Simulated scan of single mutants.
Amino acid sequence: MSINEDRLKELIETATTDIGAIAYAPLAIIGDRLGLYDALAEHGPLTPRELADRTDTAERYVREWLAASAASDYVSYDPETKRYSLSPEQALLLADTVGPASPLAGLFQIAVAAGGSLPDIETAFRTGEGVGWHEHDEGVFEGMSRISELDFKENLVSDWIPALEGVDEKLREGARVADLGCGYGESTITMAQAYPHSTFVGVDYHEGSIEAARERAAAAGVADQVSFEVATAKKYTGAEYDLVTTFDCLHDMGDPVGVAKHVRETLAADGTWMIVEPLSGDQVDENLNPRGRMFYSMSTMLCTPNALDQEGSHALGAQAGEARLREVVTEGGFTQFRRATETPPFNMVLEAKP
């Protein structure tokens, strides 16, 4: 077997990049938790000693962390002054003081926390059984909450809902909404704050997430508009909803067709189902890019195992694609389906109507 030396060098470079990313991921979490990014955003440029003093941390560790962060392009370094800082773009993604809850740090948190389930996932590879969302480390839920907050604050009320036919008007006048797979409730709370005349029910099968959602709704001052229910998307209660939402979770469900049928049964005759899913192509080769690598990898650790842990024969995965989602929704009884809008590079917003 002949070896293509150039191709071998490319693979080594790829592996070096990947191993560096894996090694940096826990450092990103440390920088987030200890306020290192925040201090750089607020007070930089700083030397390692100055950053350590501002964050009450040990200078020698901070010096190494800064070098790793600069080599990873998440922190900027000036070789003349030997000081470190965050560019506006770096700060937006990493600093709580600038961006909405550090979305990039949230992704690192999910990736690291998901790795804690490696023994269970390895066993699942051998048995074909599932690993439920509830079996993962709390960091998965927290990280998902943080990255979702960015989408909801930036896009949900300003772009996604207005892209649906007549829904924004209904919500402003007063409508009934069920938010399925609500997690910590960011989506439910964001909608409640924007539409004070409407009422909302957040639904999630994970009891711990529902408890957190109730606390957050009370803190946000919308507890009189919002209630939360521990239930699956196939068994939540209520009827005649004007809007049902599923944010980045339909592909996680073992029986998405059964979910579609239940959503259809609980919708008002002129109701709408908003389905937000990862923006992806319908074929594998359309997703062979950095975004696809992230989604496929997280799907292997989180989404597909969760679907296999539930009843049903589907395990769509995070890169299901619009065509496959259309099949699921129409098989569940919906007659109208379209892509209402999209928010590159991560989201597509689908609209289904009876």
Rank of each mutant, 00 (worst) to 15 (best):
A178M: 10
E5Q: 14
E286C: 05
D96G: 05
L288C: 10
S198I: 08
L288W: 04
L250R: 11
K261D: 12
W273L: 10
P45E: 09
D73Q: 13
E64R: 03
D137P: 03
A25G: 01
M144E: 15
R324N: 10
L11I: 07
F334L: 05
V244A: 10
S280F: 09
H197P: 00
V328F: 04
A231I: 10
P354E: 11
Q193A: 14
E327C: 08
G221C: 08
Y24D: 14
I19H: 11
L156A: 13
T97R: 01
P79G: 07
A58C: 05
S198T: 06
R339G: 02
A219L: 02
S117D: 01
A163P: 01
R339L: 02
S85K: 13
T341V: 07
G258H: 02
S187T: 12
A212P: 02
T237C: 00
T188V: 09
G254Y: 04
W273G: 02
K235N: 15
T330H: 01
T14Q: 12
P88K: 06
V131P: 06
G271K: 12
R49N: 12
S145L: 03
V157P: 01
E351V: 08
V230F: 08
E165R: 09
W65M: 06
A178R: 11
L36A: 09
R216E: 15
V167Q: 05
N287V: 03
V257W: 01
A41V: 10
R216H: 12
V259E: 10
I19K: 08
P48T: 05
V349P: 03
A219N: 11
R60Q: 15
L8S: 09
A95L: 08
Y241G: 04
E277Y: 06
K153F: 00
A269L: 07
G292W: 00
Q336E: 14
M348V: 15
A67G: 09
S117M: 13
L51W: 04
I147S: 11
L180W: 10
Q90R: 05
T246K: 03
L27F: 12
L316G: 09
F337M: 08
A318D: 04
G258K: 00
V140C: 07
C303H: 06
R293C: 07
A268S: 15
Y241D: 02
E173T: 14
G258L: 04
S69V: 07
G312I: 02
D53H: 09
S117G: 06
L92P: 00
G271I: 07
Q310F: 09
I3M: 14
A21L: 10
A41S: 14
S158V: 11
V284P: 08
N347G: 10
V259T: 11
G185Y: 03
H314F: 14
L350C: 08
T190M: 04
V230G: 00
D252N: 03
F152N: 15
E240D: 15
R214T: 07
M144K: 00
S102Q: 14
V276N: 10
F125I: 13
T47K: 02
V167I: 14
